[in-house]
Write a protein that binds this DNA or RNA. Sequence first.
DNA 1: TCTCCACCATGAAACGTTTCAATTGGCCTT
DNA 2: AAGGCCAATTGAAACGTTTCATGGTGGAGA
Lengths: 336, 336
Amino acid sequence: MRQTIRDVGDRAGVSVGTVSNVLNAPHLVSAQTRSKVLEVIEELGYRPNRAARSLQARKTQSIGYRLPDPGPGTALDVFLHQLVGTASDHGFAITLFAPRAGEDDLDTYLEVIRSGDVDGFVLSETNYDDPRVEMLSGLGFPFAAFGRADHASPFPWVDVDGASGTAQAVEHVTGLGHRRVGLVAWPSGSESGDTRVKGFRDGMAAAGLEVDPELVLRTENGFEQGRIAGLTMLKSANPPTAIVTVQDELGFGIMTAATELGLRPGRDLAVTGFDDTAAAAFMWPGLTSVRQPLDEVARVLVDLMVHRLSNPGEPPQTMLLHPQLVVRDSTLGTGT
Amino acid sequence: MRQTIRDVGDRAGVSVGTVSNVLNAPHLVSAQTRSKVLEVIEELGYRPNRAARSLQARKTQSIGYRLPDPGPGTALDVFLHQLVGTASDHGFAITLFAPRAGEDDLDTYLEVIRSGDVDGFVLSETNYDDPRVEMLSGLGFPFAAFGRADHASPFPWVDVDGASGTAQAVEHVTGLGHRRVGLVAWPSGSESGDTRVKGFRDGMAAAGLEVDPELVLRTENGFEQGRIAGLTMLKSANPPTAIVTVQDELGFGIMTAATELGLRPGRDLAVTGFDDTAAAAFMWPGLTSVRQPLDEVARVLVDLMVHRLSNPGEPPQTMLLHPQLVVRDSTLGTGT
DNA sequence: TCTCCACCATGAAACGTTTCAATTGGCCTT
DNA sequence: AAGGCCAATTGAAACGTTTCATGGTGGAGA
């Protein structure tokens, strides 16, 4: 049924070794033979068998990616599309996996390593001293991470400069005339969270404004958390006129809180989010939000991974990308 | 580095054939040998090499899934999680692929078939006379589809009863006292679209109401399309007090249109969506929406696929699942 | 003319499994 | 005691590649 390299060889009147060379080392084959073989390949629709190739080469040509937990996070479809597309360009496949119920995250990775299904991993959502980074570094197993982390041994990573994102948000609202700007962020301790807070402070400093500690709230992810933070801040003695957040859901919660208090988000209060989730565009008013170039991130992740696999000796490369503020009505009608 | 079946055999003092039998046909091995071998396997952390297994068995133990185009569709993360998890339970992997720029969809599938990377496909978003179904049926290549289709030759599918979804929406709003109920649907010609329209009519009939043709609009997917449809309907001589839609984005558009016209969605106008996207929960008011059991769909899809692979002769199985209406504030405060 | 070399092609080994025919040894039957 | 049968195990072939040592050919240099 399926065509093998032997079928091609027989048909073209050459040995299988020659066919293999046409595919993998064309310079070893005369132009004439080469074109004849290519012709037959085309004619038969031959494609090399991945399993046989992997077996012989002791490489899988596959990159593992552990699916993030479901939730209203960033756009997985865009990310995966680019991951799969770029991998395919390099002749690689993406192997997905997910922890089974109750399974430890690290064990999940170990299990995949042991079954030899992948040559390396792409990690997302890495954090300070991420245990996956430590484990994989320790094992010497190749990986590329979305998210830098201040770990002893260097490794290849891509990241989006979160500080630039919140700084842009602050610059935008202060540019609209806001002077009392609040921040709703995560508890300190996460790389991305802390970076976004730093951007906020930088932005305020750049606008010549002081950061009022009363207007900096720390809370977990989530709509309800945002709502509560919003109510707290807006009911305080000297409430903000603009609130910057580190996540869209928090922003949605704050808009809701404002509405409950009789304020019109986008008129009486400016709100910004982070991640530019699909929901941000559908709100009324639409939520001004920081968009991360996830397709670019995915592309670079795979490039780094593939490069690392073929150049194991080289020092790891890193890349910092910049996010972009998408301005919508949640801020536009506010300010002076 | 990696342990092979030979390492296990040597260590346990048996042949590789015996080790293989312990794994694949335990009844052929004495209890004593079996436990000894299992012990060694545990000790060495041995895992069979997938490539070698595939090569020998001429099976990949992998199911292909073509990523849907990015867009604010249904929750891909939930779906994929379950797809990967269930596949893993069966000892299968999921192989993702995506059409390259400008590539024909069918060619994408053909290419995957030719490279022999998968044993079968899971299809989503199938439609009437779906060309993929026709092609794969023609080739005799196994697949399982999310979405029935009235095609000549039967095939395994799972579907969510869209009619039940819209009927539930109608039942809900008429139960709140609404009498003039509008529908914003897609142009006829899609399986899921037509089914949802049918559910609307069924629901209206069940409530003893006539369907006013003026209140049935057909439009493409999208926020802006929804907004325009909403404006049209609400500005008409005899506007509806409730609007049922076949997609969340359309619902968002309608809520926006209502707001623009000075109506308060959730008070003066009831709106329902379909798919229960993440955004539906974050709106203010939250959008009442029909939730499809996507995790269940994914689970069944893989089960059907695997069953089909091991029982090629049997008539294909099918399964119809029921969606559930998630009630939120976009309808709750309305009616009499 | 002889030698050497570059170039091209070949054939066989190896990758880690599964499968299956063949072998061994123990036990039952007669 | 011989034969037969069954359960357990073995060894080798096969899956479709890549790799690499080997062989053959023709032309250039001596």
